[in-house]
Design a binder for these strands. Structure first.
Lengths: 338, 338
DNA sequence: CTGTTAGCGCTTTCAA
DNA sequence: TTGAAAGCGCTAACAG
């Protein structure tokens, strides 16, 4: 159980260089004005010789700050998170901070993540969009920590919120489907949307649209697959063979929508003539499908705002900024599939 | 710059409960035999009341151990990493450890990751397959830390190595292409494979196969796209319009191979009759393409071995195990596309 | 310019 | 069963 890697400490570096630990600390932290060039060189040489690496725990304990931020995502393998990670890393680099990512793919992992965050494993965190399993209560428990929550379900409460207008954009997409004569619209959802344990906007938008237009809710048209390309393909294929043949598919993710297009093509179904397809997310990939994917999303994948908000909080000295809200405009992007 | 979240400490909990900090520590660490039931309850109540959360830095400093492990990946958005993260998390849960993920997508980020790891941000790490930009020297610099490196290029040197037989499997796939009459085989590579800065097996296997069979190396058939579905699609489309029309595509990733299939279909090219396609990775997704994707990979995505190796090291008391090598069997998996 | 020293918050001997 | 105290490795007053 014990694994005490014995690494050299500042004390040993100091001894070798013939100076005090304070001097070592000054040199290592670039406080140039505090130490002479000769001494500086001796310390650096000693550190090098011993292979000195500072202990992050000791430093963080003393500083009361880790100089790291955390990105909390729902799964690896979601294309948009890739860009989010990149944008956050860019901001972190600029601030001299590290980035750690945590994957929350179950309620148990959500607890673990909240624990780690509360134990101050990082100075702040971004909760990525669509991380289910993280309850409002858990978010509140984290509010001591600089936090940016990307969610339409959260209200700023000690943390910042980045929202999208996906609600309205989804409604517009669904209205469009109905306006073009679709009456049997299938919904291809995320697992957590369908179990009912965790409500989501996309599913809600779907149900609301049906109601708004006086269409029946048909449970057999609501299927799983938005998390997984293969599941989506199979769900759509099964739908085609099912009791109610859909004339449109509204997929809660572009990945699933793309699978839907493939499944429909493979089944010889004309898109959009026989079945229309709409996705959510505006992935680049939607531009290379045949027909190109009609979707709902931001004009471009860009998460600099969220990253900026986080670092404003993390680096803030004195009073914390009040909870802010930034809204990213999402629109209905009509291409060929609907 | 300062953000000293003032959180309650064991001292405050102790004061409120009317006991010493030692007792608080005993209670919080479940040393039931060391403290009476009455006291235990009082301490727990006090901690609850104050909203006490222990400081991970202070604890790690004292323990000389973080009870966290790190997963180092090359990018988010690679499907296989998803399973790897899951398998590692399962093992970590069992050991009561947390999992942090670091994304290394440039040489600068590699440096940063190595720094963090050396500063002991975690008790051990798995370096995922195909994380470019991490040099052998950097790996060696990390050898103090329990480490599992998933790479065929690394030799165990204070750390464990998980290898695959992808070399042989790729060779077999390429031999198959040649045996079935392919003479103009295109290579769809990762960016870092093509710049030449970082050699990889898949590209090497490709070149070796050409040489082995006396085929010309044609630079115009070596294109980029294995990192990115859209780029892959465009590369293949461009290839079709280029000076040398390929009769096979060997893609360094299944994602790219799938894009290749789509591009070929959209161009009205018959697969495999006119152009054969082979991928690498054996993603499930290869089963739903038309035709199903011929590929090279493991029989199933399973990274429990790597996780087990890591925790054997992390939890090892006393002598470190010597560097071990585990080899995962990869095979040529012939489906319809070649 | 450099050193002495007091903690950061926690765990764990050792003594009572 | 509980407490006093040492110290993990580091930084930053403060003193010289």
């Amino acid at each position: 159980m014990a694994n005490p890697l014995r690494r050299p400490t500042t004390r040993e570096v100091a001894a070798l260089a013939g100076v005090s630990v304070a001097t070592v600390s000054y040199v290592l932290n670039g406080k140039v004005e505090r130490v002479g060039e000769q001494t500086r060189r001796r310390v650096l040489a000693a550190a090098e010789e011993l292979g000195y690496v500072r202990s992050s725990s000791a430093r963080s304990l003393r500083l009361r700050r880790t100089e790291r931020v955390c990105l909390v995502v729902g799964s690896i393998g979601v294309p948009a998170y890739d860009q989010l990670a990149r944008d956050l890393s860019d901001a972190a680099d600029a601030a001299g901070h590290g980035v750690l990512t945590m994957v929350v793919d179950s309620p148990a992992r959500a607890d673990k993540a909240v624990d780690l965050l509360r134990q101050h494993v990082a100075d702040g965190a971004i909760i990525a969009p669509s991380v289910p399993y993280l309850s409002p209560a858990q978010l509140r428990a984290l509010a001591d920590l600089p936090l940016v929550v990307m969610s339409n379900a959260a209200d700023p409460d000690g943390f910042d919120v980045v929202r999208t207008t996906e609600d309205a954009a989804c409604a517009e997409a669904l209205d469009h489907l109905v306006a073009t004569g679709r009456r049997r619209i299938a919904f291809l959802g995320h697992r957590h949307e369908l179990t009912g344990e965790l409500p989501t906007e996309r599913h809600a938008a779907y149900l609301a649209a049906l109601d708004r237009h006086g269409l029946d809710r048909r449970p057999e048209l609501v299927v799983d697959g938005a998390d997984d390309r293969v599941a989506a393909y199979r769900s759509v294929t099964a739908l085609l063979a099912g009791p109610v043949r859909p004339d449109a598919v509204f997929a809660a993710s572009d990945r699933a929508a793309i699978s839907a297009i493939l499944a429909l093509r493979d089944a010889g179904v004309a898109i959009p003539d026989e079945v229309a397809v709409v996705g959510v997310g505006n992935l680049d990939e939607g531009r290379i499908t045949r027909p190109p994917l009609t979707t709902v999303g931001p004009p471009a994948m860009d998460f600099h705002d969220a990253a900026r908000l986080l670092f404003e909080r993390v680096l803030a000295t004195g009073e914390r900024p009040a909870g802010r809200v930034i809204t990213t405009e999402w629109t209905f992007i009509r291409r060929g599939s609907a």
